[in-house]
Amino acid sequence: MDKLLEFAANHWLLVLALVGVIVALIANEVYLQLQGRDALDPEAATRLYNREDAVFVDVRDDNAFVSNHLPGAVHVPQSHLEQHRERLERLRGRPVIAYGEAGGIARVVASMRGMGLEPVYQLRGGFAAWRDRGLPTEGRG
């Protein structure tokens, strides 16, 4: 134990860097857990859509939406979420499944909840996961 303390005293920058890396790893794990807390895989999203009249909300840009989107999806670009508040508020009472191209839209989900929508989920893996599983889509592509 004395040698460990001596090492730490002589190499305090290395010890500080190690502590920083450990804190960053823990913070990253917590962030990833929060990201996936309310995420549904494509199969679970399909069940919710079919059984509980859930609505898909596509937050990708206009070109991506026009090219291809999930069946019956409502298009509300992520960059214009607040401008579409009234449109989103009409979805109250229905489960909402939001998706982007590849997932990671926790902020969008939080914003939708702030508008009074509940429950709001994100599609794990986004449109890419849906497409990779060969599930039905609409649009030009």
Rank of each mutant, 00 (worst) to 15 (best):
K3Y: 09
L4F: 12
A8C: 14
A9K: 13
L14Y: 11
L14C: 09
V15S: 03
V15E: 02
L16F: 07
L18G: 11
L18I: 08
V19R: 03
G20A: 06
I22C: 08
I22Y: 06
V23E: 03
L25Q: 14
A27W: 10
N28G: 10
E29A: 14
Q33S: 14
A44D: 05
A45C: 07
R47Y: 10
N50I: 09
R51L: 11
V55H: 03
V55D: 02
V55L: 07
D58S: 01
D58A: 01
D58Y: 01
D58P: 02
R60I: 06
N68F: 05
L70V: 03
P71T: 05
V74P: 04
V76L: 05
P77H: 11
P77R: 12
Q78L: 14
H80Y: 14
E82A: 15
E82I: 13
Q83T: 08
R85F: 09
E86R: 13
R87V: 15
R87M: 13
R87A: 14
R90H: 10
L91N: 03
R92L: 04
P95F: 01
V96F: 00
G104V: 02
I105E: 01
I105P: 02
V109Q: 01
G114A: 08
G114H: 07
G114Y: 07
A128E: 08
T137M: 09
T137S: 08
G139P: 05
G139F: 06
R140I: 15
R140P: 11
G141P: 07
G141M: 10
